[in-house]
């Protein structure tokens, strides 16, 4: 009797989520298939998407490279944190999470102050006689911005998996004659695959859709898909094309994360939430 009543508590939530997450996606699809002026059904927005394929390609390239760099840098850090005492783990976990809670706009602006031609790094290089380098407005600066902003999203799920790995498995592998490298490749790494997948996804999704990092750190002709959508929607007053691009972006993300899950044999059930 009690149980039936409790079930009812989920109803307002389900209604809310349907109205404010599912239906809006339907509205996006509706705008993607209608004409901005007449409001009639049209394929023209969808047909125009073809011209944006290079932009999509570039965005995917940037974000995949960033996600791989994050994995390379984040794995050792997550591993290190997972092997500390519980108190130190808590402290380091908090230190990884803290930057995520601070304004990412201002933190990205700080990189402008660091990287620009008369910025902190170049002034230092100049003072010690190396001379100024071109740091800002390069593809490298955009990748740096993405890695910097999204690295915590890689470290946290990796840590969550690594800390759960039974240390007896590692000991067993070592007892059976594995070198540390073999132990890592044959035991630790396979067991941490779900963490790798969820970390890669959590870096890839925001990176592929960002529109601030590329505007501040990239060269003026670097246009990522997020920049195009933002311009269409907020400045170009072409909400319908913006909707079509958003739809494509959503499908792209869905397919990419799907492929990632398939490749690693994880069904996405055990995605770690931070």
């Amino acid at each position: 009797m009690k149980r039936n009543k409790t079930v009812l508590l989920s109803v307002p939530y389900i209604v809310w989520m349907v109205v404010f997450t599912l239906i809006p996606l339907g509205v996006v699809a509706y705008y993607a298939f209608t004409d901005p002026d007449t409001g009639a059904f049209t394929w023209s927005n969808i047909r125009e998407l073809g011209t944006f394929l290079p932009v999509f390609g570039e965005s995917v390239l940037y974000s995949v490279v960033s996600a791989l760099i994050c994995l390379l840098l984040g794995y050792p850090v997550a591993y290190y944190i997972a092997h500390r005492s519980p108190m130190v783990q808590k402290l380091l976990y908090m230190l990884v999470m803290l930057p995520m809670c601070m304004s990412f706009l201002l933190r990205t602006l700080a990189w402008v102050g660091l990287l620009q031609d008369t910025g902190i790094i170049n002034n230092t290089l100049d003072a010690i006689g190396i001379g100024r380098l071109k740091l800002i407005r390069t593809p490298g600066a955009v990748i740096l911005g993405m890695v910097y902003n999204y690295l915590p999203y890689m470290i946290l799920p990796l840590y969550a998996i690594l800390v759960k790995i039974d240390s007896r498995l590692i000991e067993a592998a070592e007892d059976l004659g594995c070198t540390p490298a073999q132990t890592f490749l044959k035991v630790t790494m396979p067991l941490s695959t779900p963490g790798i997948v969820s970390g890669m996804t959590m870096v890839f999704v925001p990176a592929v859709s960002t529109f601030y990092i590329s505007q501040k750190l990239g060269s003026p002709d670097t246009m990522l898909i997020g920049d195009v959508i933002e311009r269409m929607y907020k400045q170009g007053n072409n909400a319908n094309l913006g909707a079509a691009l958003s739809l494509l972006l959503m499908i792209l993300v869905f397919v990419c994360t799907g492929i990632m899950n398939k490749l690693t044999g994880s069904d996405g059930e055990d995605v770690v939430v931070v």
């Binding site: 989920s10 939530y13 389900i14 989520m17 349907v18 404010f20 997450t21 599912l22 239906i23 809006p24 996606l25 509205v27 996006v28 509706y30 705008y31 996804t201 999704v205 925001p206 592929v208 859709s209 529109f211 997020g226 959508i229 933002e230 929607y233 909400a239 913006g242 909707a243 958003s246 972006l249 959503m250 993300v253 994360t257 939430v273």
Partner: peptide, 27 residues
């Protein structure tokens, strides 16, 4: 099923969530 629904705002790019809500309100 309900947890899948809960995952939508977590897995969708923020820009898509923003535009979809904006379009809903405008609509």
């Amino acid at each position: 099923t309900v947890m899948r629904l809960t995952d939508i705002p977590m897995t969708n790019p923020e820009i898509v969530t923003g535009i979809s809500l904006s379009l809903l309100f405008v609509f």
